[in-house]
């Protein structure tokens, strides 16, 4: 992909992010932070590329360490969000 097409995706995604986040109800701002934290661990993609590549052992081990850190975040982030969201209940009636 060219730099300009990547930049286009980025700029448009910023606008999407702006409108989507304003539509989040304030009552769910803590789960919002937990889930954004989980999804920002998509950085694991870069970590996997580094761990799978042969040639430079240092890069590979850094990659594997990053895989551990990112997956702590992915599993922990989604699980804690799920736990919080399960607590939000409607009035019984």
């Amino acid at each position: 992909m060219t730099f300009v097409s990547i930049l286009s995706i980025f700029v448009l995604a910023c606008f999407v992010g702006y409108y989507v986040v304003w539509s989040v109800t304030p009552a769910l701002h803590t789960p919002l932070m937990a889930v954004t934290n989980a999804i920002s661990s998509v950085i694991i993609v870069g970590a996997l590329v580094a761990s799978a590549a042969a040639g430079v052992p240092g890069a590979k081990w850094l990659g594997l360490t990053a895989v551990v850190l990112a997956s702590v975040n992915i599993f922990g982030g989604f699980a804690v969000t799920e736990r919080m969201l399960a607590m939000y209940k409607k009035k019984e009636r």
Partner: peptide
């Protein structure tokens, strides 16, 4: 953790840019 992972990935990319 996200921050540290980003640093590690960046350093790995610097050390093995071809990958």
């Amino acid at each position: 953790l996200v921050g540290l992972a980003a640093v590690l990935v960046g350093v790995a990319a610097f050390l093995n840019p071809a990958a």
